[in-house]
């Protein structure tokens, strides 16, 4: 989902985030609606973040992966309070932190695979965001 959000358009990203949400919901007691909201929040926040900061390297992919974990859990926490009858009162923050630390370690292993898929589908690389600081 990260790679689609980074290297694909908005529509494809949203469709895939829903598919990912359907997959995740079968492995958790989390309501489907909350999973979808969290996945959508991750996908769209990556799309927005990409327009501000972006460079075509696996290090960027690692950074985005780690931040996405926080976005997912914080969105789930907020949406459970806003929408659920049984809000999350004791979040497992320790688990969140561990996931946020471990996910970027796996990211560099997957980045070449995703780039290979992009090359196979002949997708153009998105432009790197550059700019000048004016005082």
């Amino acid at each position: 989902m990260f790679t689609l959000a980074l290297f694909r358009g908005t529509l494809a990203t949203i469709i895939l985030s829903h598919l990912v949400a359907l997959s995740i919901s079968s492995a958790t007691a989390m309501p489907l609606g909350l999973v979808m909201i969290a996945c959508l929040a991750v996908a769209l926040s990556i799309q927005v973040f990409k327009t501000r900061i972006f460079w075509m390297q696996s290090t960027y992919f690692m950074m985005v992966s780690g931040l996405s974990v926080f976005v997912f859990h914080i969105t789930h926490f907020a949406s459970s309070w806003a929408l659920s009858d049984t809000p999350l009162t004791t979040p497992a923050i320790g688990d969140w932190i561990i996931q946020a630390l471990l996910t970027p370690l796996v990211a560099p292993l997957l980045f070449p695979l995703f780039r290979w898929v992009d090359a196979l589908t002949q997708q153009d690389d998105p432009p790197e965001v550059t700019g000048t600081i004016t005082v």
Partner: peptide, 13 residues
């Protein structure tokens, strides 16, 4: 055979 994917929920398969 499996436990919940999310640390904030408790379920088993």
């Amino acid at each position: 055979i499996a436990r919940d994917l999310s640390p904030d929920h408790e379920s088993i398969r």
